[in-house]
Simulated assay, not measured.
Amino acid sequence: MNVKILLVLLWPFAASAQGFAGLGTSTDGFATPESPAVFDFSADHEPHPDYRIEWWYLTANLQDDDGTHYGLQWTLFRTALTPDGGDGWSSPQLWMGHAAVTTPIDHYVTERLARGGIGQAGVTTAPFEAWIDDWQLSGPDFDNLNMTASGPDFAYDMDLIALGDIVFHGDDGYSVKSADGQASYYYSQPFYAIEGMLTLPDGDVHVTGNAWLDREWSSQPLSENQTGWDWFSLSLEDGKLMGFRLRQDDGSYYTSATWITLDGETTAYPDGAFQAEPISYSDVNGRQIPTQWNVRLDERGVDLDVYALNPQSWMETSVPYWEGPIIVEGSHTGVGYLEMTGYE
């Protein structure tokens, strides 16, 4: 590929001093989220090209027939070079896909890049289909999906069924990310049951488990002084917890959390209620990465130690980050996923 073309493709995803991956840069004519949030389904499962940044982000905690734990990721990102429209090769929309499988001893990851406007990647509804090249997340609707992806040393083919309703984070889907008021639209489907086949170097593995899909879009979700985030999705015996802390360049944090009951009722928690502190670090690709944490949400009696299934879950992609399954112990037990960005 021509080097200049490659740089054009990768530029929007490159790490920036103004927030991780440039997410703290100005909106530059793009639309911005407003409160109160108003959603339209199934239309809001589709892209929002007048916003700069968007993703369809699925993670899954799995076990095989012998009880061995695995993790799975399927992510489709969309970014826009400009707020102006265009067709075909003149489209300003760019796409990136990440797929990964994590075992207790291995972490397999691969990436796809695509231009918008030429059919190489996109999202449509009725029926739902999200794709980049031959990877797909599709089905008759958002509640019944098949998901496939492959890389040089792995593949998977999974079926998902939603056993609960979509939930909204923050103020009914308006998720504030900083004291300055930066925000995104943010909803999740955390109630998927998932089953299928992992294809790994040692052969096929039948797995079952639960999956969590995040939908988020914005044009400036971070403040200029925010350098990265630590995001947790936890599936516990009596509910689910989404919590994140956004690291700020003065050493402080901005936090947010959502408690989700098993029947889908949500309680949003403001800055300061959710706490996450590293317990121990691992050397990961020459970086010191926190791979064991204490997580607390005192108002719910949550006091957890969480640790990485595989500390070496580094995503060596255009924008490198850590993403992998976690095991939960303490006041509650369960499993979850942890994403950590902005670690140099």
Rank of each mutant, 00 (worst) to 15 (best):
Y343H: 14
Q182K: 07
W314S: 00
G336S: 05
I194S: 07
T333R: 15
D171H: 08
T59F: 00
T341D: 07
E224S: 13
M315F: 12
H45N: 12
Q288L: 13
L137M: 14
T148L: 01
Q182C: 07
W89S: 06
P290M: 10
V284L: 10
V295P: 07
D250I: 09
Y57I: 01
G67P: 08
S26G: 13
W217M: 04
L200G: 02
I118R: 11
N61T: 09
E329I: 04
P104A: 07
G203D: 09
I260W: 01
E129F: 06
S219T: 10
Y321D: 01
E299C: 03
L113E: 00
W314N: 00
G228A: 13
A211Q: 03
P221C: 11
D249I: 08
V176G: 01
A183C: 06
S184G: 08
A308M: 13
G286H: 11
T208I: 11
D250Y: 13
A179K: 12
D305F: 06
D28Q: 15
L94C: 02
G228R: 03
Y269P: 02
K4A: 15
E111Y: 03
Q189K: 03
I194M: 11
Y185I: 00
S252F: 08
L137C: 15
L94H: 08
Y281L: 10
I327E: 03
P152F: 00
A211G: 14
A100F: 03
S35Q: 15
L7W: 14
S91A: 05
R296Q: 14
G264S: 11
D159M: 01
G203Q: 08
P83A: 10
V328D: 01
Y51R: 15
Q292H: 06
R215Y: 15
H48L: 02
S90R: 08
L6F: 11
I289F: 06
S218G: 02
D50C: 04
V176Q: 10
Q248D: 09
S16E: 09
T68D: 05
G117E: 10
L198P: 01
T333H: 14
G228L: 10
A193N: 09
L262Q: 14
W293Y: 12
G330T: 08
W131C: 02
S175F: 13
K177S: 12
T148D: 01
D50H: 12
M147F: 01
G272F: 09
E216H: 04
W55L: 11
T103S: 12
F168G: 07
